[in-house]
Simulated assay, not measured.
Amino acid sequence: MKILVCIKQVPDMESRFKVNAEGLWYDESDLAWRMNEYDEYAVEQAVKLKEQVGDAELTVLSLGPDRVREPIKKALAMGCDRGVQIKDDESWRRDPLQVASLLAGYAKDQGYDVIFTGMQSQDRGSAQVGVLLAELLGIPSASTIVDFAFEGGTITAKRELEGGIKAVVKVKTPALFTCQLGLNVPRYPTLPNIMKAKKKELLTVEAASLPGADALIQVEKAAYPEKKGAGLVLEGEVGSLVEQVIGILKEKTTVFK
């Protein structure tokens, strides 16, 4: 079995963000970087599947500049067999379809049986790359999975729907799955596995060598949200509050005009 897990490096969400000098993106110079949290669950599930199957090759793939090699190395220490970086210094200027197109450009001829991605990235949160990748590869996908079981070429997955409802789906391989938080408990890389990861293959593929690499969005401006007035908190008995709200609506809006 051939397994692929796609990961992304994101800024630590506790970082202090500021717009860069060009006013086009955030300044990356003082940011701490880490593997996207959703992708940690995807890596763990991929490793679990590899351990279950036994005869499997697990590749971890990431798009971005050279700093993305760090989360790739973490995934290798967690149990992936080989890493691939699609080197792209302009990845911040790609929309979800463009990102998925580059990932598909690499993966399409590799014959992967199962592909995992995180449900979404913590920085952009589009939740689109995984399902777009499946569509471009022409394979079925199940998104937002919270449970996963493989047996005899069929995967039974539990999906999280709105309102806390769960749906159980059965999918034949090849297929792609996007992973929700809580799917499993991601393992911590141990020191021996970190040392082993240093000897594992980590390839670099230039984005320019893949179809669609010249497609970039044009960023006009990046700016902080406009500051608005503070909210008004009303306290008291319900009857009094109703009168206050009506008074505010008459004074501040055209509702009663």
Rank of each mutant, 00 (worst) to 15 (best):
M1L: 12
I3H: 06
D12G: 02
D12C: 01
R16S: 12
K18D: 07
D27G: 05
S29K: 15
D30E: 15
A32Y: 03
R34D: 00
M35Y: 02
Y38K: 03
E40F: 00
Y41V: 03
A42P: 01
Q45M: 01
A46F: 01
V47Y: 00
L49F: 00
G54K: 04
L58K: 09
L61Q: 10
L61R: 08
P65H: 02
D66M: 05
V68N: 12
V68I: 13
V68Q: 05
R69M: 11
K73V: 01
M78V: 02
M78Y: 02
D89L: 10
D89A: 13
P96W: 04
P96G: 07
A104P: 03
A104Q: 08
K108H: 11
K108T: 10
D109R: 06
Q110K: 15
I115H: 07
F116H: 04
T117V: 11
M119T: 04
Q122K: 03
Q122T: 05
D123P: 02
S126D: 13
S126G: 00
V129T: 14
V131T: 15
V131H: 03
V131S: 15
G138K: 12
S143G: 08
I145N: 01
V146I: 15
D147W: 00
F148Q: 02
G152H: 03
G152L: 02
G153A: 08
G153E: 08
T156I: 10
K158E: 15
L161Q: 11
G164R: 01
K166S: 07
V171M: 12
V171K: 12
T173K: 10
Q180T: 03
G182Y: 00
L183G: 01
L183K: 01
K196T: 08
K198N: 09
K200E: 07
E201Q: 13
L202H: 06
E206I: 04
E206R: 04
E206G: 03
A208H: 03
S209H: 02
P211V: 10
P211N: 09
G212K: 07
G212T: 09
D214K: 14
D214Y: 05
L216H: 09
A222M: 15
Y224D: 11
E226A: 14
K228T: 13
A230R: 12
L234A: 06
E235W: 04
E235K: 14
E243I: 09
E243W: 08
Q244Y: 07
V245Y: 11
G247Q: 12
K250F: 02
K252P: 03
F256E: 06
